[in-house]
Write a protein that binds this DNA or RNA. Structure first.
Lengths: 348, 348
DNA sequence: TTACCGAGTGGAACCGGTTCCACTTTTGTA
DNA sequence: TACAAAAGTGGAACCGGTTCCACTCGGTAA
């Protein structure tokens, strides 16, 4: 086990000073005679020299690294987001340190501390909603923060990248209304989250547009973790006045909800029309394939990274930026006109 | 934007030297009088001091970081692996830098260089199969390498963690044989990969055990990337002598293969019994639910990290270790006895 | 009483880069 | 030809930790 060459090794071998080598490495930092540059580059090649990141970071005060803080990578949405962020970051020569929170503010706080230790230049995060002061402190110490997917109301001066939540929920709801549904259930995230609020807003707007009154019983706020989606499905369908349409707008709960529907033997779309938020590879492999709101994950990743890197390089004007990208509605065969059920006729 | 306190700030505030503060931070490195220790700890708390990782790394020569190099995070297998590795690493105070290769040796080489720059203490990787010299160089520079899921034949002295590939394939094949299948197709990875070879070995062993001769036309080696799985399915079923059973043992190609089956309207298990490698959350949501070999991803992650950290801390004896964990076979309703088809009767 | 040992402490070098600054050599222009 | 400006170079400080070493104390054994 030998040890890697350092800048001084290169300087010695090339017969120049370390300053010259450093300038060859960072061309903007000063002039180097073409001949010497060539000479140094040759030695670098021969020795297989590569600058140590730690040394550079120590000197620069911050690292060419961004932290990615998400709930967990088992959720395909975050997995794909991470995939794109990592991929996109690479092309900018930036590394990504991934941390997961499991939606637990304490774990989130720990993650932020760790990222701070690492002097990351920026953080892309799906915040749990807590740790307001911690986020502030982070920003105060010069770490550029971008929230993706969700926002925090108390932190209005943070960049945010998300889909048009309200609009997406509205389109999904409209689709079911157009098919003739009037009792449309919504499973969404906690009301404390921005996505939960926005999506319910779009749902409400669609109902109002069709003069359908909103039945609070049909709206379920379900935490991101756990099996709340399945339970909500169970309780919604157990009602004597069960819905004929269902929108699962809590990405993390789609699996749990669909699993319960399958277990209960619910016939889709005969018994229930279903639309889920977030189009996964498997949503079209279920039977029937599920109609879905497809989040343009690549776009979310791209914009988030663009923002973080832009801030890190100081080439963005001050002031928080909010980017909302359009999500596609992908109609599949899980939606149909409601059956004229016994329940339905009772209400007539 | 203020700047974070340094060890000298702490020393000054506590009225001691930096050496003392450092010894408080790293208790094993020397004695500190209890009174002063308390005093220093108080100041640390007050100032919110946290040691900069870069400085520590520079001095130590290596980082408390491991690299995780996988194909991509869009594949649920790797996503879950990453999830567990990140989670497990956190509890050891280790950060994970994730890099993806897209199965491209060039990208892999780039990733390894980058990880080298970062002075990572270890790397957990699913190697593409190339870059043999590069892996050697990495190890030569003191980076601890553990291969997960796959091995590289030329690098026999590297730790490897995987499932019992041969045994798993054998059990899947046995299951179909027991149901009465004789024409069993196998879609697996390239023959150049260890998983491809081992799994075909198990398949062959099962057939031999049942005195069924192996028809080379039924074995398809498909690259990890692209839509080869779907194409293989198409060509297998187009044959006049089509199989009645199918094992998709190339994790990356399961989605593509299943999608094609659905598109072709193949009735499972009536027309074809199917077993897939790798149990995803969605394999039981398709209809019918798919029988699967369930890789104990948590175990893979745990052992990989255990090995890497063990090596980093020098508490493991020399000599490469190979850990093979048992995979579960999860029978679901995608397998049944073969129908007595026209094709079948011809062969009798 | 002296010599010795270990605990406790601070100074300073070091890790490997970057950058400022002083200095020498060109080059361009009057 | 003279002289200022620009190009090119190397020395040394610095980033923020760790660690080696010399040194000062007590306490204990000879």
């Amino acid at each position: 086990m030998k040890k890697a060459p350092t800048i001084r090794d290169v300087a010695a071998a090339a017969g120049v000073s370390v300053s010259v080598v450093s300038r060859v490495l960072n061309p903007e930092s000063g002039p180097v005679a073409p001949a010497k540059r060539e000479q140094v580059l040759n030695v670098i090649r021969e020795l297989g020299y590569r600058p140590r990141a730690a040394a550079r970071e120590l000197s620069a005060g911050h690292a060419l690294t961004v932290g990615l803080v998400v709930t967990d990578l088992a959720n395909p949405f975050f997995a794909q987001l991470a995939d794109r962020v990592v991929w996109e970051a690479r092309s900018h020569g930036v590394q990504v340190v991934v941390m997961t929170t499991q939606e637990d503010p304490h774990l989130e706080a720990e993650s932020l501390d760790t990222l701070l230790d690492r002097s990351v230049g920026g953080v892309i995060a799906t915040p749990t909603g807590g740790n307001v002061e911690k986020w502030d402190r982070l920003r105060d110490l010069g770490v550029n923060v971008v929230f993706v997917d969700r926002a925090i109301a108390e932190l209005s001066d943070v960049d945010v990248v998300s889909i048009e939540n309200s609009d997406s929920a509205r389109r999904a709801t409209d689709h079911l209304i157009a098919l003739g549904h009037e009792r449309i259930a919504l499973i969404t995230g906690p009301a404390s989250t921005s996505t939960g609020r926005s999506r319910i807003g779009g749902y409400r707007a669609a109902l109002e547009g069709a003069s359908i009154s909103l039945d609070p019983m049909l709206v379920r706020h379900v935490p991101f973790r756990g099996d709340g989606g399945g339970d909500a499905v169970g309780s919604l369908l157990a009602s004597p006045d069960a819905p004929t349409g269902l929108i699962v707008a809590n990405t993390a709960q789609v699996q749990s909800s669909v699993r319960r529907l399958v277990q209960m033997g619910v016939r889709i779309p005969d018994d229930l029309s279903v639309i889920v938020f977030d189009d996964n590879p498997w949503t079209e492999l279920t039977s029937p394939p599920l109609s879905a709101i497809r989040q343009p994950i690549g776009m979310l990743a791209l914009h988030s990274l663009e923002l973080v890197l832009g801030r890190m390089q100081g080439r963005l004007p001050a002031g928080a930026r909010t980017i909302e990208v359009m999500a596609d509605f992908v109609p599949r065969s899980s939606c149909a006109a409601p059956a004229r059920s016994a329940t339905k006729s009772v209400t007539r």
